[in-house]
Simulated assay, not measured.
Amino acid sequence: MIDPKIIARRILLALALTTTLIVLGACSTARLAYNQAPNLLYWWLDGYMDFTSAQSSQARQDIDAFLAWHRSTELPTYARQLQQWQALAMQDITPAQACTQFEAVRAAVQRASERGLEPLTRLAQQLSPEQQAHLQRHQSKSNESFEKDFVRGSPEQRLSQRLDKAVSRNEMLYGRLSPAQRELLRASLQQSPWDAQKTQQERLRRQSDLLQTLQTVQTLRNGNGNGPVDAAALTATRGHLARVLQSPTPGYSAYSQTQVQHGCTQFAALHNTTTPEQRANAVRVLKGYEDDLLALMAQR
Rank of each mutant, 00 (worst) to 15 (best):
K141D: 15
F51C: 09
S140G: 11
R176Y: 03
E118P: 01
L127C: 11
A232N: 07
A295G: 05
L173F: 13
T235S: 09
L270K: 00
N272A: 02
Y252F: 12
I2P: 08
L234C: 03
G175R: 10
A30E: 10
P4Y: 09
Y42D: 06
E171A: 07
A269L: 08
T18H: 15
L220A: 03
L75K: 00
R137Q: 15
R203M: 10
Q259C: 13
E144T: 10
E290L: 08
A65T: 12
A295K: 11
P155S: 10
A254K: 12
S178C: 01
M49N: 03
S57R: 15
S57W: 05
V105S: 02
Q125H: 06
G223V: 03
Q91Y: 00
A298H: 06
C264V: 05
Q157P: 05
V151D: 01
A87M: 12
G175C: 03
D230T: 09
F51G: 05
E171I: 03
Q131L: 04
P129H: 07
D50E: 15
Q125S: 04
L204N: 11
P129C: 11
Q55S: 04
Q131V: 03
L45E: 06
A268V: 10
Q299R: 12
Y34F: 15
Q125C: 09
S72R: 13
R203L: 10
V109D: 14
Q110C: 12
L32Y: 13
L67D: 07
L185P: 08
G47W: 15
N170G: 00
Q246L: 06
A108Y: 08
R206C: 04
P248S: 14
R176P: 01
R152G: 08
Y174M: 04
R106A: 12
Q55P: 01
H70K: 04
R284E: 02
A54R: 08
H240Q: 11
P248D: 12
Q61W: 06
E118W: 07
L32D: 14
L41P: 00
R162V: 01
E290T: 05
W85E: 11
L245S: 07
R169C: 00
D50Q: 14
S256I: 05
S140Q: 15
L13H: 13
S192T: 14
S178R: 05
E290R: 14
T77F: 00
K148A: 14
L293D: 05
S168M: 12
L270N: 10
A65N: 13
Q261E: 13
G175M: 04
Q81P: 01
T216R: 11
G263A: 09
C99T: 15
K165I: 02
N222V: 12
G225T: 00
L120T: 05
W69T: 09
C27Y: 11
E74A: 06
P248V: 10
Q197E: 13
T275K: 02
E277T: 13
E114T: 14
A242I: 08
A59N: 04
Q190A: 07
R60S: 06
G223R: 10
R243F: 04
Q36T: 08
D3C: 13
V217Y: 02
D291G: 03
A196V: 01
F102S: 07
D230S: 14
D209G: 13
N143P: 07
A14K: 09
S256N: 08
W43A: 09
N35E: 14
G263W: 07
K148P: 00
S208F: 04
Q84E: 09
T29C: 05
G175A: 06
L117D: 07
P38T: 11
